[in-house]
């Protein structure tokens, strides 16, 4: 795969991961279990949206066909989204939302940290801004996972069920596709195996504190990176893209 095509797909994926997960978290806005958590999730969703804007803008520039962040966010179909499946799964109950965020944040933080050292200066700059946000996101999701896991019998049961159910979506985070392999070989993207080592350490530490059991590694879902998504992404995009689809060129 050509370097520019690989960079386009990889930067697009970084944007799509943040955009899709950010949208999922925004679904809690006005529905949070508590006023303070409602605001916290909306904050985190906005952080992710900001990251998505930076990455999608850069992806459009790499592609060089004049597509803007809005074109990429609003005018692609689900097969053209390259995010991991973990990001698009429905929000579920609050333990499920927290567990998904935790599994993603524990991957997202070391990835963004490593990207700050990328020779691609644009990528390093965007990641530099994202690191502080991702640090807080991981802190927030870890805190809540520990509270749920080490909380009541009911919260423990729900947290363990969420981790068990989400586990098969974690393998895709660390399985490079062709575009990512090209960039890893070129030294632009960090080796995902080194990110996995940090993820393993974080997951082991937090799960232990939360008195939760790490599930056995079994079959892992794939396909999101190639645009083959779960049935949930289409519904998410229908809502996310409704306005620009219904009123093309609308300004607001």
């Amino acid at each position: 795969m050509e370097r520019s095509e690989a960079l386009f797909r990889t930067v697009l994926r970084l944007g799509d991961n943040s955009l899709v997960l950010g949208h999922r978290l925004s679904e809690w806005c006005g529905h949070g279990p508590q006023l303070e958590e409602d605001i916290a999730q909306a904050n985190i969703a906005l952080d992710l949206l900001g990251q998505a804007r930076n990455y999608l803008t850069y992806a459009g520039e790499i592609e060089g066909k004049g597509r803007t962040e809005d074109d990429l966010a609003y005018l692609r179909t689900e097969r053209q989204f390259l995010n991991v499946k973990l990001a698009e799964l429905p929000k579920g109950d609050y333990a499920h939302t927290i567990a998904r965020s935790f599994l993603f944040d524990a991957f997202h933080l070391p990835l963004q940290q490593a990207l700050t050292k990328s020779p691609d200066e644009r990528l390093a700059g965007i990641a530099g801004k994202a690191v502080k946000e991702a640090t807080y996101h991981l802190r927030h999701s870890s805190e809540w996972l520990v509270r749920f896991g080490d909380g009541t019998e009911e919260s423990h049961r729900r947290a363990q069920a969420a981790i068990d159910g989400l586990w098969m979506y974690t393998g895709e985070l660390f399985a490079p596709d062709e575009a990512e392999r090209t960039l890893i070989e070129a030294g632009i993207l960090p080796d995902l195996a080194s990110i996995k080592a940090e993820w393993d350490a974080t997951v082991a530490r937090v799960l232990a504190e939360a008195t939760l059991v790490r599930p056995a590694d079994g079959w892992m879902a794939r396909g999101g990176k190639d645009g083959q998504h779960t049935e949930h992404l289409g519904f998410l995009l229908a809502e996310l893209q409704y306005l620009p689809r219904a009123f093309p060129g609308a300004q607001w």
């Binding site: 303070e36 605001i39 916290a40 904050n43 807080y136 802190r139 927030h140 805190e143």
Partner: peptide, 12 residues
């Protein structure tokens, strides 16, 4: 948790 909530509610 109070400090983290304060961060989210009052220092945005």
């Amino acid at each position: 948790m109070a400090i983290e909530n304060a961060r989210d509610v009052y220092t945005r």
